[in-house]
Design a binder for these strands. Structure first.
Length: 636
DNA sequence: GTACTGGTAAACAAAG
DNA sequence: ACTTTGTTTACCAGTA
């Protein structure tokens, strides 16, 4: 198997790589290989985390990785989906939007955390100064210096992060501002007040800071995860108010910093909130600020324990910083990888997709993906097969079911599938059909089908033996694929009627079910179904404008109108009432002559009894089409 | 629990 | 003899 795979890879590589280099505009075989490798690497990177870049020690790396996955995943997906699942559920544009959101969230988290840290460090300075009276002078001086250095370091780190992010074009705000557009994000997403929980059970006075860091690091993930409950509204805004420091808050901070030698502003203390001490791991209840100050001076005076805690806090911040840097780097790579999808909003595909996305079989109106993802239909969660990335058994391709039109999906994410090592969520049968229908004469040899797979999907550039076997298996198994002996060999064609018949397997023989289902569907869903079918039928022409409406689609698709059942049947089709049933050779001949008539008349037995769902709003062609197309598209 | 569908693996044969 | 193509069977998993 592996031997065959290797040989096939070599053989199919040149042809398959031709279209691969589109990312860089290259089209020769050499760049294709590199592109494929890059795609594979990026996919692995996304799944398993960034590789070591030499800037981190093994321990740090381990620690970082321990934090990284849960944090990032939690921030990306409140439902705790794996990246692969996210990838499958979300369309590439959605992924991009999500990544940007993740980046923004991390930025906000870091900013808030920096502020928190600054306040804590600053408070430490204050505490030292007050407690320093009982301490030896030079020791106090050293520690003060250390704290000041830490504070300075914190500020530098913060500025550096902001600069980095600005350089990436991800942030367009001034460092003094929390995060302009990001303020719409849930404030509780990363709540600094949760951070003290990291210190729960934190080290005893003599415990080394490193040990604490390990614990904190692990706890941090949990904190971040729990803090990422987007759905829940921020229930405690008051405690946040003096931590998050929206816009004018930095001035408060600076004023406090300036008044470091003075009294704290009455009623507000960065470590005091909700009547309790906010010192990491403390949470001692204090009735008023005075009591809190007293508690602070007694319990959190400048000693080894407090120093260790502060160091731990520092390391937590540093971990976050490292994580942010790593995530930023990864995000950049991912975006660079995905950026090849400018999505050139094809004007024709948009109406089709939008309507298809608007009305899903579930009857829900799915919002448009995002501004950055204008025209990608959402796949219903759970519909897409999961965890295909590693090449494991993949189930439940979505193409045939529901109304996810393979053509429009492919048209929109063509570049994505071409370069990303992601398994397309379509069945082999639908892919084979697509490959065949893309050709002018609607026929392909087996090898040409192979080439189409490798050309269109990076995923099919590996494990060739497996999927090729599957292709052959599907070609032989499904009646909709007709083998035709040609002068130059055997070619494969698609019997659309068989293909359409195959799609509504569960609906056949249950007219009542069909009827109930149709009656339960809105016109929008029906229309979406129709348009989806139309889009699917017109994939080969999606790259040419004018497939906006059934009429133009049919006119541009002399042959494939049978594809969508009989949607565009009223159109020319040279009026022939078609020979209903063709033997394979005949059919192939029809294909070649492009005379595939508007048949499907005899296949539409149950249709007449169903009646048009909404005659007033739909034209006759749509009605007929929907009656036939709907079962397969909407229910299955 | 069952039927159906889809994916994967494998064996086998025929043809080039 | 080897590869490619094509067929068939079996098994597993997901879904209705």
């Amino acid at each position: 198997m592996m031997v065959e795979s290797a040989s096939e890879t070599i053989r199919s590589a040149p042809s398959g790589q031709n279209g691969v280099g589109s990312l860089s505009g290259q089209a020769d075989g050499g760049s294709g290989g590199a592109t494929g490798t890059a795609a594979g690497c990026s996919g692995r990177d996304v799944a398993t985390g960034a590789d070591s870049n030499g800037e981190m020690s093994p321990a740090e790396l381990l620690h970082f990785q321990q934090q990284q996955v849960p944090v990032s995943v939690a921030m990306m997906s409140p439902q705790m989906l794996t990246p692969q699942q996210m990838q499958q559920i979300l369309s590439p544009p959605q992924l991009q939007a999500l990544l940007q959101q993740q980046q923004a969230l991390m930025l906000q988290q870091l900013q808030e955390y920096y502020k928190k840290q600054q306040e804590q460090l600053h408070l430490q300075l204050l505490t030292q100064q007050q407690a320093g009276k009982q301490q030896p002078k030079e020791a106090l001086g050293n520690k003060q210096l250390a704290f000041q250095q830490q504070l300075l370091q914190m500020q530098q780190l913060q500025q550096q992060h902001l600069l980095n992010l600005q350089r990436q074009g991800l942030v367009s705000l001034q460092p003094s501002q929390a995060s302009g557009p990001l303020q719409t994000l849930p404030q509780a997403a990363v709540c600094p007040t949760d951070l003290p929980q990291l210190w729960k059970g934190e080290g005893t006075p003599g415990q080394p800071a490193e040990d604490s860091v390990k614990q904190e690091g692990l706890d941090l993930t949990g904190t971040a995860a729990t803090a990422t409950s987007f759905a829940a509204p921020p229930k405690v805004s008051p405690p946040l108010s003096h931590h998050t420091l929206p816009n004018g808050q930095p001035t408060v901070l600076t004023s406090r910093r300036d008044s470091s030698s003075h009294e704290e502003t009455p009623g507000s203390h960065p470590l005091y909130g909700h009547g309790e001490c906010k010192w990491p791991g403390c949470e001692t209840l204090c009735e008023d600020l005075g009591q809190f100050i007293k508690h602070l001076n007694t319990e959190h005076a400048l000693d080894d324990r407090s120093t260790a805690q502060c160091r731990v806090q520092m390391q937590v911040v540093q971990q976050l910083e490292i994580q942010l840097a790593k995530e930023s780097e990864r995000l950049q790579a991912m975006m660079a990888h995905l950026h090849m999808r400018p999505s050139e909003p094809k004007p024709f595909s948009q109406p089709v997709t939008v309507s298809a996305a608007d009305s899903f079989p579930d009857g829900l109106v799915h919002p448009p993906t995002s501004a950055a993802a204008p025209v990608t239909p959402l796949r219903p969660p759970g519909l897409s097969s999961a965890s295909l990335h590693s090449g494991g058994p993949a189930r439940r391709r979505s193409s045939d079911k529901f109304c996810s039109p393979i053509s429009s999906e492919l048209a929109q994410n063509h570049e994505f599938y071409k370069n990303a090592d992601v398994r397309p969520p379509f069945t082999y049968a639908s892919l084979i059909r697509q490959a065949i229908l893309e050709t002018p004469d609607r026929q392909l040899t087996l090898n040409e089908i192979y080439n189409w797979f490798t050309r269109m999907f990076a995923y099919f550039r590996r494990n060739t033996a497996t999927w090729k076997n599957a292709v052959r298996h599907n070609l032989s198994l499904h009646k909709c694929f007709v083998r035709v002996e040609n002068v130059k060999g055997a070619v494969w064609t698609v019997d659309e009627r068989e293909y359409q018949k195959r799609r509504p397997p569960k609906m056949t023989g249950s007219p009542t079910l069909v009827k109930n289902m149709i009656s339960g569907l809105s016109y929008g869903a029906l229309n979406a179904s129709y348009q989806a079918a139309l889009a699917e039928s017109s994939f080969p022409l999606l790259n040419s404008p004018g497939v906006l409406n059934p009429g133009s689609a049919s006119s541009l698709l002399p042959l494939s109108h049978d594809d969508a059942g009989a949607p565009v049947e009223p159109l020319p089709s040279n009026g022939s009432s078609s020979p209903p049933r063709l033997s394979p050779p005949q059919y192939s001949h029809q294909v070649q002559v492009k005379e595939e008539p508007a048949e499907a008349e005899e296949d539409r037995q149950p249709a007449p009894s169903l009646g048009p769902p909404n005659p007033s709003t739909m034209g006759p062609p749509e009605d007929r089409d929907l009656e036939e197309e709907l079962p397969g598209e909407e229910l299955s």
